[in-house]
Design a protein around this nucleic acid. Structure first.
Lengths: 198, 198
DNA sequence: GTCTATAAGATGATAGAC
DNA sequence: GTCTATCATCTTATAGAC
């Protein structure tokens, strides 16, 4: 929070970058794109973000905050099963966007991690935050530490896999079908029984 | 097959491009990269591939052929359940590569489809081919048309989700755990029973 | 068919006037 | 703080000698 971290122009740049990075990806988005979309002249951007990477880092921070909010919103229910279903339910109306542009967390994380370096690790933190929350819900349902981890991973993989296919096949219905199936799965899941089966 | 489609230099270029597109992605790979990796001088590449896009198209064709081969190899068993397990089993030793560079089909398809245009549709064909084969195996297990499609989608989404997480979290163990769980799932799956539950 | 040199354009970043 | 002009570099693609 050193310099101009709250100016409206900085906010315009960040919002434009968020949108463009989701729609086009980091590599495909030029600073000229961000300048046009935000209405801030190219040369002026550098006052707020000294490099493209620092702009990307700000987008990651913003996405982390956004995910935090969505997890908190889904976490309002007292029943962990309902919390998971809240989370999936909230994704349902986003299916068209997700099939068009991919997951704003997953795609970004993949792109960042493939670039390597410090920024790559920041990308992983997006997925870790989500995984930890999902795992915590299964733990609250009575699953043991190990089983909760496996169920959390299973659900997260199913969610991201659905979005990859929705994007890759160009069909949002794929995402909707899978999300509904996952809600049904959670609804009928007995963690103790699954645990004994292993 | 008009010009020099079988020359060793063309083959070198194609192999280098295959590898680089998997490791770095299409956008991040320059023709200079391909030139260095293949040992073919930059200016000479254009005799074999007139544009970067035509080189990418050749890589897609090559990946389609590779997938065809792996599906055929897994399809040697007479039991459809065994065929699915063969396919997953063959992925298991690739977990480290998949966690490092992502799925050579899924990542490519995602990148292509996000670029739009004719080449985007070619990316989708990679995933369609895989989905159709998976679905066919469930159909051969006795599932109805609709249920086979849903199971095929579920398995495909689970596979690709596992790879996305393995890559994003930088942990190949994630992929191994999920693949083994999927094999167990297939092993215990009764398609008629699942069908009745809906 | 092969390869060097280079054109043409895009892109991240900076200089410096205001 | 803002913004135009521009630099330096990278990247795709071509020209043309061999």
């Amino acid at each position: 929070m050193t310099v101009a971290n709250r100016s409206p122009k900085r906010e315009n740049l960040l919002q434009a970058a968020r949108s463009l990075l989701h729609r086009q990806g980091l590599r495909a988005t030029t600073l000229a794109d961000v300048a046009v979309e935000s209405g801030v002249p190219l040369g002026n951007m550098y006052y707020y973000f000294k490099t493209k990477e620092s702009l990307a880092a700000a987008v990651i921070e913003s996405r982390l905050g956004e995910m935090e909010e969505s997890l908190t919103a889904a976490g309002q229910s007292s029943d962990p099963r309902a919390r998971l279903e809240n989370y999936l339910q909230a994704m349902l109306p986003l299916a068209d966007q997700l099939a068009r542009y991919g997951c704003p967390y997953g795609c970004l994380a993949q792109e960042l991690v493939r670039m390597g370096g410090a920024i790559g690790r920041k990308g992983a933190s997006l997925l870790e935050k989500q995984r930890d929350w999902l795992t915590a819900q299964f733990a609250a349902m009575g699953a043991g530490r190990r089983q909760a981890g496996e169920l959390g991973l299973e659900l997260q993989a199913s969610m991201h896999g659905a979005i990859v296919l929705g994007l890759g096949l160009g069909d949002p219905e794929v995402i909707r079908v899978r999300l509904k199936a996952l809600m049904t799965w959670i609804d009928g899941l007995d963690v103790r029984e699954v645990g004994l089966a292993r």
